[in-house]
């Protein structure tokens, strides 16, 4: 097990490790704060729409497949399709946030919602960044840049599958 064994740019792995660590810490804190008010947290979580989140998971892993193919073949189409998947994810997210706000789910309404918006919002910010990176790389695709963009995109994917259960589903 050597540093050089890691596939791709080392910096991307530092980033992946850091991101996973930060999100994991955030989720842990949320679960810890939940102990102070389990019933309130359960009620608050019940107000979220898990179906949209599950749909978004499918969108992200499909988009991840395109990114992985682009990484292998160096194709522009794969990168743009992956970016399109990210845009679809964001569209669902906006619809979800709008519906949330209409139901009174706001940042200050309950501590759970503070974590909900911080965690998913921070993740969505990474989706936006990922879409931008994918599109920029697609302008003039190179093997190394396509790989770095795809790695970033898989990180966004990875963080999302770890967020999904604790934030939306555990109940």
């Amino acid at each position: 097990m050597r540093i050089d064994d890691l596939p791709g740019e080392l910096l991307m792995w530092v980033l992946i490790g850091s991101e996973v660590a930060v999100f994991a810490a955030g989720i842990t804190v949320m679960e810890a704060v939940r102990l102070t008010d389990p019933a309130g947290f359960a009620t608050a979580q019940g107000m979220l729409d898990g179906r949209m989140a599950t749909l978004n998971t499918a969108l992200l892993v499909t988009s991840g497949l395109f990114a992985a193919r682009a990484e292998r073949d160096g194709g522009r189409a794969g990168l743009l399709l992956a970016a399109l998947g990210g845009v679809a994810f964001l569209a669902v997210k906006i619809a979800e946030y709008t519906a949330d706000a209409a139901r009174g789910v706001t940042m200050e309404a309950h501590p759970f919602f503070t974590f909900y918006y911080l965690l998913t919002g921070f993740h969505a910010a990474h989706v936006i960044a990922g879409v931008v990176v994918l599109v920029l790389v697609a302008i003039r695709p190179r093997r190394d840049t396509a790989q770095a963009a795809a790695m970033f995109w898989h990180m966004v994917d990875l963080v999302w599958v770890l967020l999904l259960a604790p934030v939306y589903l555990l109940g």
Partner: peptide, 15 residues
């Protein structure tokens, strides 16, 4: 500043 900074600050500065 808004209260959510307490969590953002705690989380990131811990790292």
């Amino acid at each position: 500043m808004p209260a959510y900074w307490q969590w953002v600050g705690s989380l990131f500065s811990s790292f």
